[in-house]
Design a protein around this nucleic acid. Structure first.
Lengths: 358, 358
DNA sequence: TTGTACGCGTTATCAC
DNA sequence: GTGATAACGCGTACAA
């Protein structure tokens, strides 16, 4: 007979029942709103539980019920040494929403030498999580393929190319970049270059597609050297800028796949003596607070990252509660935040000098 | 007799044992490195477990062992609408370290109307976590007071004023700001202003103390209007800057409690037509990657946030494993990262024009 | 070296 | 309306 290992003074249901002179079953049912317990018994049990600070052990409850009210979130492997600020906001919103629903959020990193699917598989098989949220989807994403076969609820923040049979919440990246191009064209720009990200990441691909579609629809120039892919850090942005500045037909505006890239680009431009906002307009994407703190302020397409996190949390929980329901597939729009970095091109300015443009 | 609730095909130890023709006990001991199991039995069990994809249920294991290998992390209530980038890095390092130790990381937010201690108390009492990491300590921190009485392992990232009887890892903020002042004095500055944060937060208080001590030790001026507290966002930074610029004895250098404040200040200065790096030197604290992407680059005292997160994770796990050991109390130093925002004052430059300063 | 049996804290079922 | 008891899956003291 094993010795009692930890006769903690934690208030267990057994001690509570003994204290009340009731059976454990009765106490449990009283606390869980079973209809067959006398109202005054319920009240008595509730009161005692409250006074004695009783909280059911999540572990024991899980074992008995066979469910795990925990959502897993695997931090994408860190390419460089910095975490995506957008991701941090998502995480914040997700944690908030889950806390309100009494679900937990389990955050895991991917150790070197392992991959994300492996980590998720372990979390599921050791019954640590009962659902997943996946962020930063790729066009073809092995995580989604894996989760499709895992029979646990999950939601993707961002779609994959093939996205009919699972739940997701995405920003309409393509439309956002069409809007951004149209805005620049409206300002008088015809020569618009693009600093794109990793084309494997779906959001980068969608934004690239929006740029291409809108540039073509507006009949703008698109000489080779205007479209740059794979710009994921400041160094890459700097190299791209130096090429763009050497271009025989130098663009007057620059569309960037993220605010981080845009800020790197602005730095490189300033370093090259280019006046951002007049000689070169810049537009980013994300709406990072930092974009407001730099000079000039960054005009950008904003997405409500925190709200995205909350909504994604809401979806995954509701899906866990009603497994039979249809998959939520939600598309939100980004909105233009105008600050100082994008203005009519200088040539255009000069032409319109006697117009009202200050 | 309760119907079997979820006759999942999940591989349980019972099914594995039956498959092997062994008892559950033997299988369990074989998998947990007990010395009394025949080597070839161990091998046989291991192999079968591997092939059948067996992973012990964390829930059942926790219940049997009475321990929860999960660290809780409560996101500080969000003052504004943005998460601290420094915190995100910590979280990343923490998650990585815990993953390597096979511990889990439970992240929780604080719903409106609740407070952090309440959230932590619930997490402990419902046995969801077996330890805590606390970040962003205040000088007098109710979270620490609470955890002291809770008898579970915890580590603070940052000290409180009274910090003898618990484990912490802190940056020597005071020394860092002494170093920063000395650096500015070495460049020729004598008029150094300070944009401080919330004085309740210990790091802000320590940095303020370092500033005051060093300014005094160097015999620098410290007229009223040089020291500003409570600068926690860009708006506050802007207001402070406008006051500082009106000062009859305008400072030549500005020390900021964080990079975020510094970047806000640089923006406000640029907006006022002040040339940052010559007319006004600026130094921040954190070493955010963003400081490298702006113009001019931000000279700053860097701290290795990711490494801090990892070390904090290592400490809390080792404390959980050896509860009798002494409290780790670790002080790390920040290091100066020189970029373009801090240089000799222009007057000094003019005097030394024929000296070697380029 | 291995099998047996109990306990961890809770919930569900059936008997009273 | 309430009590008794069997699961849930695993770890482990003790018997064999």
């Amino acid at each position: 007979m094993p010795r009692v290992r930890k006769q903690n003074e934690t208030m267990s249901i057994a001690r509570l029942a003994k204290h009340l002179g009731l059976s454990e079953g009765t106490v449990s049912r009283a606390l869980n709103n079973y209809p067959d317990i006398a109202a005054k018994t319920v009240a008595r049990v509730r009161k005692a539980a409250d006074e004695l600070g009783y909280r059911p052990s999540t572990t024991a409850r899980r074992l008995a019920r066979g469910v795990v009210e925990t959502i897993g979130f695997v931090l994408p492997a860190r390419d460089g040494h910095q975490i995506d600020p957008f991701l941090a906001e998502i995480l914040d919103g997700l944690a908030t929403e889950l806390a309100l629903s009494d679900w937990d959020l389990l955050v895991s990193a991917v150790p070197d030498g392992h991959d994300e699917v492996e980590v998720m598989d372990r979390l599921i098989r050791s019954a640590k999580v009962g659902g997943f949220v996946v962020a930063r989807t790729k066009r073809h994403d092995p995580r989604i393929d894996f989760l499709r076969t895992s029979h646990i609820p999950f939601v993707a923040q961002g779609r994959t190319e093939n996205c009919e049979d699972y739940a997701w919440l995405d920003i309409d990246n393509e439309k956002a970049f069409v809007d951004a191009v149209n805005y620049l064209v409206g300002l008088g720009h015809r020569k618009i270059a693009f600093l794109g990200g990793d084309p494997e990441l779906n959001y980068a691909w969608q934004r690239r597609a929006g740029y291409l579609a809108a540039v073509s629809a507006n009949g703008c120039d698109l000489p080779s050297g205007y479209l740059h892919d794979g710009i994921t850090n400041e160094l890459a942005a700097r190299d791209a800028i130096s090429e763009i500045l050497k271009h025989p037909d130098r663009p007057t505006a620059l569309l960037c796949v993220t605010d981080a890239v845009a800020i790197g680009a602005m730095h490189a431009l300033a370093h090259a003596g280019i006046d951002v906002g007049s000689e070169m307009s810049v537009i980013g994407f994300d709406g990072l607070p930092m974009g407001e703190a730099i000079h000039p302020g960054l005009t950008t397409m904003s997405q409500a990252s925190y709200q995205i996190g909350r909504e994604v949390g809401r979806i995954v929980v509701s899906q866990a509660n009603e497994p039979a329901s249809e998959f939520s597939q939600i598309l939100w729009e980004a909105s233009l935040t105008v600050r100082g970095s994008a203005n009519p091109p200088v040539t255009k300015l000069a032409e319109n000098a006697k117009g009202g443009i200050s």
